[in-house]
Design a protein around this nucleic acid. Sequence first.
DNA 1: CTACCTTTGTGAACTAATTCACAAGCTCCC
DNA 2: GGGAGCTTGTGAATTAGTTCACAAAGGTAG
Lengths: 208, 208
Amino acid sequence: MRRIAESTVRRLSLYLSFLEEIEARGVPTTSSEDLARLGGTTSAQVRKDLSFFGSFGKRGLGYSVPELSARLRRILGLGRQWRVCIIGAGKIGAALARYAGFTERGFIVSAVYDSDPSKIGSRWGNVKVRDEASLERDIEAGDYQIAVLAVPADSAQNLADRVVRAGIKGILNFAPVQLTVPNDVALRAVNMAMELEALTFAITNKVD
Amino acid sequence: MRRIAESTVRRLSLYLSFLEEIEARGVPTTSSEDLARLGGTTSAQVRKDLSFFGSFGKRGLGYSVPELSARLRRILGLGRQWRVCIIGAGKIGAALARYAGFTERGFIVSAVYDSDPSKIGSRWGNVKVRDEASLERDIEAGDYQIAVLAVPADSAQNLADRVVRAGIKGILNFAPVQLTVPNDVALRAVNMAMELEALTFAITNKVD
DNA sequence: CTACCTTTGTGAACTAATTCACAAGCTCCC
DNA sequence: GGGAGCTTGTGAATTAGTTCACAAAGGTAG
Ligand SMILES: NC(=O)c1ccc[n+]([C@@H]2O[C@H](COP(=O)([O-])OP(=O)(O)OC[C@H]3O[C@@H](n4cnc5c(N)ncnc54)[C@H](O)[C@@H]3O)[C@@H](O)[C@H]2O)c1
Ligand SMILES: NC(=O)c1ccc[n+]([C@@H]2O[C@H](COP(=O)([O-])OP(=O)(O)OC[C@H]3O[C@@H](n4cnc5c(N)ncnc54)[C@H](O)[C@@H]3O)[C@@H](O)[C@H]2O)c1
């Protein structure tokens, strides 16, 4: 398949979230124009984004909401359950472990890993805190495909290397460091400093 | 000033973080090649990014680390203190309020706002939980320039409208909704679902 | 069946971002 | 002081992404 731009993937996620809202309101069809308005883009952009994957609409009518959302789910790889572990049972790890948004989207979080003996063995809701020493064993057993890194910056690369070696397929990194992983492993980073700096840049260099 | 691409701003933040590491190691100069290697880009990209703002290096020699990082800080608007409030004293709000990374970057978080009477008045470290009813008054008094939204999705737009009316300059949104704000207000969003979906898309559509 | 309205899907045109490639500037050394 | 060796800064070329614009297709009403 032709390489898909990251911006396209982001927009597909966005369209899916709009479709879910529209579906919840019981509206049966929608149009590229509707989705564009909701997403702050143009209808041509919506149609072009979808066209990379096929043709899902009916001319003159628009798109069937359930059909298009099913298609987008499939395109985004959401047609299956994903098992996720969180590494680092600190402040951000705790928030993530209890975050309902994961489950709602079909991501199963069943464990958090930490190295601190005082945390290991405790239970947060139905999530257990496990010893990070068993991380490799659990990943190799197929318990998780995705790891969320919520550890201090100076442990992050080491843990990334370990989970990669054990066969993880995707990493979502919250530590403020640039990780290096083989390019068959998917990597995304959430970097608060960068987000805040994008804000201060925009405020400071306002066009008016 | 010519409009600067968002990708450029993201890379400037990244370069700054590399410069801070390099500075901490006591290395006095660096080159576009070094920064490119660290950031997974090309030296031409680094030089082009910087060239939008001036010319900071010495041919044949490279860049003075303290000078370039000072320049980047100024470009990114970090030459001053920014006061930030967090709205929503829930799981993610709690993690953010105690996050050292904010303070390290010169962002001062002094209050969290919530509507839940059982939370209002409590104190987390040196951060107080205040009644969201006083949000407008505090913003109008100049207490904050930036608001971080960590409230449920269905309250987020309403709170955004309120803080905008009160004069906030930038919003960092954690709720999984697309907010609408006037375009003189800077807006960034951290959307977990999108990050995870970017991972599952990449894993599912792997090029091999 | 036809005219008319709507909205898709997509090449073509355009705009933005990245990469190339090299002259210019700085240092060092003989 | 001049040549060698680096590395910057930047137009030009290239590549990527977005928007335009319209033919094609579906629906509806008369
Ligand atoms: N708190 C936030 O709001 C926030 C926001 C964005 C990013 N971050 C980043 O997320 C990371 C974690 O932040 P935090 O605030 O939760 O810190 P924290 O100190 O509360 O938690 C870190 C946890 O990681 C554990 N840990 C350390 N080394 C480990 C290892 N080798 N294996 C397993 N666990 C290990 C520690 O025991 C601790 O429980 C940091 O890199 C931070 O910069 C935090
Ligand atoms: N927990 C996570 O890891 C996580 C991650 C990403 C995004 N989010 C998003 O962040 C938001 C908060 O998530 P959470 O897990 O912290 O939820 P939470 O329920 O723990 O916290 C929400 C808080 O907001 C407060 N609140 C509600 N309405 C308010 C109002 N009008 N004014 C002020 N405060 C109000 C509630 O009292 C509560 O304390 C949600 O939109 C969620 O989707 C959460």
